[in-house]
Design a protein around this nucleic acid. Structure first.
Lengths: 235, 235
DNA sequence: GTAGAAAGTGTTATTTTTACAATCAATACC
DNA sequence: GGTATTGATTGTAAAAATAACACTTTCTAC
């Protein structure tokens, strides 16, 4: 037995959608593609699966190369397989999205890739079907974050409630009442108040919180309903 | 330009998880695998992607072969890529799950495959990583059906509210108060009452309903909250 | 010491959800 | 023909969750 006979063998790619939050708006990390086709165009960071690694391993490898980071939040999004998606050769690409703390991202590592963060509203045109990937990822993030605490992955180890609210408002492109928001997030039991304050945002300063990891893992699978009226928000 | 040089080319498989509902319990359609490796073992229906078709096309082709059905509800589940998942050769498999009306399924077409419906509780051991696929599909169905009306896909064109309730109870392995259930589903505006009754289940008979397709498509993306307290149900 | 600016906090009205049981319709049986 | 049987159908009240809404506090800068 030496393998399946008569079956096609196809180049298997991965594409990584890296999201970060700068305190203002959700951003995506793009690179200038370094090889043909579409060399020099803005693109997602991608790569190809080697024979001996899983697609998860391939994604982590590529992300490590690009960002210097390990062990980030990474979720398989979708596999894109239109026979004509890549003009050079038939490829199938599995897209993964990563949520990272934008501050941990190591600038120097990606100099080779000419990587840049783009606010989603001012994102350049992407190659192939990558535009579709980004749209799907955004949908998925909104969907999932309405029920699960994944957005904490975008924040530094300590953060303030106003920062957290800005993040939710940015992801859902909406305004949330701050009294209700703070009640809601505190009620999850996921936040632990710290002694210190962040003085950068206001004169009074806002207390730092960090995530209660115990509750985080315990509640991750639960439906949390962070977002009021998601029915009206998700498109 | 003749393609990417130095990249691995990999056999791309698809696996189809076909679910049906017989009025009592959720069932999955399995076949006796007709080729090596693992010939003769119970398996999901699968196939390989041809060079010129997308994975969606491949899945539909395979499902048509197996069930004789076209245009069924089909959703990409996940791509499984462990390098050792298939002992014969490195393959990557994208799993799709289908929800069909078990009555439409054409028995004769699949005689070649020795297909059989199994209640999920009495499912035989499957080959490779297919057990994991089934578990993931069940999770996804429970997750999605808590918010979207996908379970209607499992029912015939007309059905009664008690039948619908049995379906939900079977999927979530729970009991739901019938007064609250009927209020809830009728409130969605997805059901249209018909004049006739189904007399098979009781002397009095239960009114048939059918899905309001207009509302169905309109509300499909909305969060519907069919299931009381999903927090306690989803594991 | 005062003006400014964002942080922090409580209550009420409304809506949604849950709990709970009697009546109705049709058949089967006497 | 009458009655027993069986599942279908329907409403209300209590409880919980959500949404609406504005003033006070804290700190800095001037």
């Amino acid at each position: 037995m030496t393998g399946y006979t008569n079956e096609a063998r196809i180049v298997q790619a991965i594409d990584c959608l890296v999201f970060g939050f700068d305190g203002e708006t959700l951003k995506i990390l793009l690179i200038k593609r370094g090889f043909q086709p579409e060399q020099g165009k803005w693109s997602l960071m991608g790569g190809f699966a080697k024979l001996t690694e899983s697609l998860e391993q391939a994604s982590n490898r590529v992300l490590k190369q690009l960002t210097g980071l390990d062990g980030m939040y990474l979720e398989q999004l979708h596999t894109f397989s239109d026979p004509n998606r890549d003009p050079l050769e038939r490829t199938i690409s599995t897209a993964y999205f990563a949520l990272i703390d934008i501050n941990k991202y190591q600038q120097q590592l990606n100099a080779d890739y000419h990587a840049e963060w783009f606010p989603l509203k001012r994102m350049p045109k992407l190659i192939f079907d990558q535009q579709e990937m980004v749209e799907m990822a955004l949908k998925r993030i909104r969907y999932k974050a309405a029920l699960h605490p994944i957005l904490f992955e975008l924040l530094p180890g300590r953060f303030t409630i106003p920062q957290l609210q800005t993040l939710y408002e940015s992801v859902y492109n909406t305004k949330i009442d701050k009294r209700n928001f703070s009640k809601r997030v505190l009620a999850t039991g996921l936040l632990i108040k710290q002694g210190e304050k962040d003085k950068s945002g206001s004169k009074r300063g806002a207390f730092y919180y960090h995530v209660n990891m115990q509750n985080y893992y315990a509640k991750f699978q639960a439906f949390l309903n962070f977002i009021p009226n998601p029915t009206n928000l998700i498109s």
